[in-house]
């Protein structure tokens, strides 16, 4: 078996194993779908009336791409917690003693989590359509929008893999990730227009990759604010390129780092 086909075969085996868990623990899928629905309804109806978006676009249209981005970035934290759990239960030791690819456990994990994220995005999109969100672009553009979101989340998964292998306790992984994820997803154009931020935060938000992901999704779904002032920052003028740069950068750093940590780590 060539090295590449071995990686693919092993990763498929591990992905299958992770998805079986989703099947056996229905709570996982229930909460993976319920919490996005809750977010959509909460922001749409609780804040929707209070938050003014510039130009002529409904808050539902402005909001949904933001919710998509926040939810799947949060969804990526599963990667870290699940790896920490495998480490704690001695499964990583077993895998490391097998003649399998060193990257397969990580690829299988991140791919399974990508699958879960894809499910939540579909659920959110359907809920969004019910509460007034619309796709105002072409089919290829809309597909592009979903792809950009999922790709970015996939890159975050690898960052979380590194966190999980370093922190090694699922609960701590969760808390540590929320510390990072919440500021990143809130100090952005996710829920409110950037113009409402004080200037320092506004600069941060403009260059925050989450803002770019959201902007890219809005552009690709045709939810951008018609008649709103054009963004000043290059990052938001070219959100797709900027997002892909971050995605590639994250993968280039965290894939090798995670594989390296995995090869050296072990229980305790």
């Amino acid at each position: 078996m060539s090295a590449l086909s071995a990686v693919v075969a092993d990763s498929a085996t591990i992905t299958r194993r992770n998805l079986i868990k989703v099947k056996r623990v229905p709570d996982l899928i229930v909460f993976a779908t319920l919490s996005p629905i809750m977010f959509v309804l909460l922001f749409r109806y609780v804040f929707g009336g209070a938050i003014d978006v510039p130009g002529d676009v409904s808050y539902a249209e402005f909001l949904l791409p933001g919710i998509f981005a926040q939810t799947i970035v949060l969804g990526s934290t599963t990667t870290g917690a699940s790896l920490a759990e495998d480490l704690q239960k001695g499964l990583i030791d077993r895998f490391r003693s097998l003649p399998m690819s060193r990257a397969a456990v990580l690829i299988g994990r991140t791919v399974a989590d990508l699958g879960l994220n894809a499910i939540s995005i579909v659920v959110m999109a359907l809920t969004g359509l019910v509460v007034g969100w619309r796709i105002n672009s072409s089919v290829p553009e809309a597909i592009g929008g979903f792809l950009v979101l999922l790709l970015f989340a996939y890159a975050i998964s690898w960052l979380m893999a590194v966190v999980g292998l370093l922190v090694r306790t699922p609960e701590v992984v969760n808390n540590a990730s929320f510390m990072v994820i919440f500021p990143l997803t809130f100090v952005a154009n996710t829920f409110v227009p950037l113009e409402s931020f004080p200037s320092v935060l506004q600069t941060f938000a403009e260059w925050n990759p989450v803002s770019a992901v959201v902007q890219a999704a809005r552009d690709l779904f045709g939810n951008s604010v018609a008649g709103a002032p054009a963004p000043d920052a290059w990052s938001l003028q070219h959100p797709v390129v900027y997002t892909l740069l971050w995605t590639v950068g994250f993968l280039a750093v965290f894939v090798p780092l995670a594989v390296r940590l995995y090869s050296r780590t072990s229980t305790r």
Binding site: R17, K21, K89, G90, D93, R94, S97, T267
Partner: peptide, 14 residues
Amino acid sequence: IGLTGQYAAVDEYL
């Protein structure tokens, strides 16, 4: 080789 560690390293959900 085959390794059996001190703690049964089996996947609980499988």
